[in-house]
Design a protein around this nucleic acid. Structure first.
Lengths: 243, 243
DNA sequence: TCAAGTACACTTGTATACAAGTATTATAAT
DNA sequence: ATTATAATACTTGTATACAAGTGTACTTGA
C-alpha cells in the first residue's frame, strides 16, 4: 500500500525543472489522486505559501492546469474540477481519436525504426516490473505511446497529446503504484498488450491495433464509451483506400 | 486593399481584455499575417517595450502562443514558427477530426435547438456582408463552428478547439478582410456552404456534412490533405451502427 | 593572425510591490 | 430584527527588482 509521502509526483523527474513546473506537476497529482477534493477553491496566495514559492510560478501552474481542464479559473480563485466518470470517458475518446489517426498514417509509412524503438521501451518496462519500480514503469508506458504519436511528425496531433499527456501520466502513475503492491500479476498482461500493439504496427493490422488499443486503455480506466463506433469506422472505411 | 493599421486584431474585441490578452491576440495576428516573419527571435523585453507593458503579460502571451504552436520557446528568446503549407494541412486534419467526431454525436442527439441557433448566426453573417463588415463576419463564422462543437458538451474536444480556435480566428480574419475588398462574390458561396452544414445537421446526413465541411474549410485554406480518407471512413463505417 | 579567457549585455525565472476590483463582515440607522 | 452602508480582507493583473545562467564580443597572450 502507498505509504504517505510528501510529494506525489516523482521528485527525480523534476531535477532540472523550474519551481513553476514542480508546482504544476505536484498540484496535478494531488487533484487527480483526489487528495485535493473536487470543488475546492484554490487561491494563488495560499498555494504559494504551501509550496514556499511566490505567486509567479503558481500563476503559471494554474494557467496550465486550467488548460488541461482539471481546474476552472474564476474571478475569485480557481475551482478544482477533478476527474469524473464522464471525463474519463472523454479522455478515452480523445486518445482513441488521435491514436487511430496516427495508426492510419503508420499504415502507409515505414515503421521498422519505430518498432525497434518500441521494443526497446517494452524491454525497459519489463525491467521496471522486475524491480517493482512503478514510477519507472509508468514513465516508460507514457513514453511508449508518445513515441508512437511523435513518429508521424504531426505538430497539431502532438499539440493534442501535449495537453492530454500530463493527465494521462498522473493517472497511470497512480494506477501503477496501486497495482504494483496489490495486483502485481496485472503487469504481465499490460506487457502482452503492448507487445500486441507493436505487432499491429509491424504487420499494419488495423483490427489488432484497435483491439490492443482498447485493452491498453481499459487497463488504466475501466470505462468504455459508445465511441467504439469510431474505431469501427476507422477500421472498415480504410478498405477502400484511395491513394 | 487593407489600409495600414496600428493593430491587426480588432480593438473592439478587446474591450474587457487584460494587457496579456491584448498582446497575445495582436502578436498572433502579426505572426500569422507574416508581418513578423518566420524565424524571428522574440525577446520578452523587446515586446514589452513595443507594447508599452511589463514583462508579465508578455510572458503570458508567449506561453500561450507556444502552446498554439506558432512560436517555440527556447533558452534564449522565442523563435517564430509561423504557418507553413504543412501546418495548414495539419490544422485541416484536426478540424476534420473533431468536427466529424462532433457530427457523429449530433446524429444521435436532438438538434432542433442547435439548428435554430446556427440559423441565427447565419443571418448575422448575411447582415455582416451587407455592411461589408469583414471582422464581424469572421466573428460569426468562428462562432458558428464553435457553437456546433460546444453543443455536444465534451470538455476534451472543447479543449482541442480552444487550442485551435485562436489560430483559426486569425486565419479567417485575414482571409475575409482580403476577400471583402477583392472577391466580394465569394461570400454568397460561403453562406451557401454554411447553409448546407445546417441542413446536414438537421437531416443528419453524413455525406452532406462531409461535403460542406470540406468546401467550408477549403474556403479558408486551399490545401486538401490525404486525410480525405478519414471522412470516408467516418461516413462509411457508420452504416453498421451498434447502439 | 589566432586561441583562450574575461567582461559585458541580454536572457529567463522568481520574488515582491502595488493598484483596482470583489466578496464578506461589521456597523449603523430605522 | 432588518436593511443600507461602510470597513475589511481577500482576489487578480501588472510592474519592477534581482539572481542565475547563457551567448557574444572584446581583450590579452602568444
Amino acid at each position: 500500500m502507498a505509504e504517505s509521502r510528501e510529494f506525489l509526483y516523482p521528485v527525480k523527474w523534476l531535477s532540472k525543472a523550474s519551481a513553476g513546473d514542480r508546482v504544476t506537476s505536484e498540484l496535478r497529482m494531488r487533484i487527480i489522486s483526489g487528495m485535493i477534493e473536487s470543488g475546492t477553491i484554490l487561491s494563488e496566495n495560499k498555494i504559494a505559501a504551501d509550496f514556499g514559492v511566490s505567486r509567479s510560478p503558481v500563476r503559471e501552474a494554474l494557467k496550465i492546469l486550467a488548460s488541461e481542464n482539471i481546474i476552472r479559473l474564476e474571478r475569485m480563485g480557481a475551482v478544482v474540477i477533478g476527474l469524473t466518470e464522464r471525463k474519463y470517458a472523454e479522455i478515452y475518446d480523445v486518445r482513441i481519436l488521435i491514436e487511430t489517426f496516427v495508426f492510419e498514417r503508420l499504415v502507409r509509412a515505414a515503421t521498422d525504426e519505430l518498432v525497434m524503438e518500441l521494443s526497446k521501451i517494452l524491454e525497459m518496462m519489463k525491467i521496471s516490473i522486475k524491480y517493482s519500480d512503478a514510477d519507472e514503469f509508468s514513465y516508460q508506458d507514457v513514453l511508449f505511446h508518445e513515441t508512437i504519436i511523435r513518429s508521424i511528425n504531426h505538430s497539431y496531433i502532438l499539440m493534442i497529446w501535449d495537453n492530454l499527456k500530463p493527465v494521462m501520466e498522473s493517472l497511470i502513475l497512480l494506477s501503477m503504484r496501486h497495482r504494483i503492491s496489490e495486483k502485481y500479476e496485472d503487469f504481465t498482461r499490460v506487457i502482452n498488450n503492448h507487445q500486441l500493439y507493436i505487432d499491429a504496427i509491424k504487420t499494419k493490422d488495423r483490427e489488432l491495433m484497435i483491439k490492443s488499443l482498447h485493452v491498453n486503455f481499459d487497463d488504466v480506466q475501466e470505462k468504455v464509451e459508445d465511441l467504439w463506433m469510431a474505431q469501427q469506422m476507422l477500421s472498415k472505411g480504410v478498405g477502400q483506400e484511395n491513394d
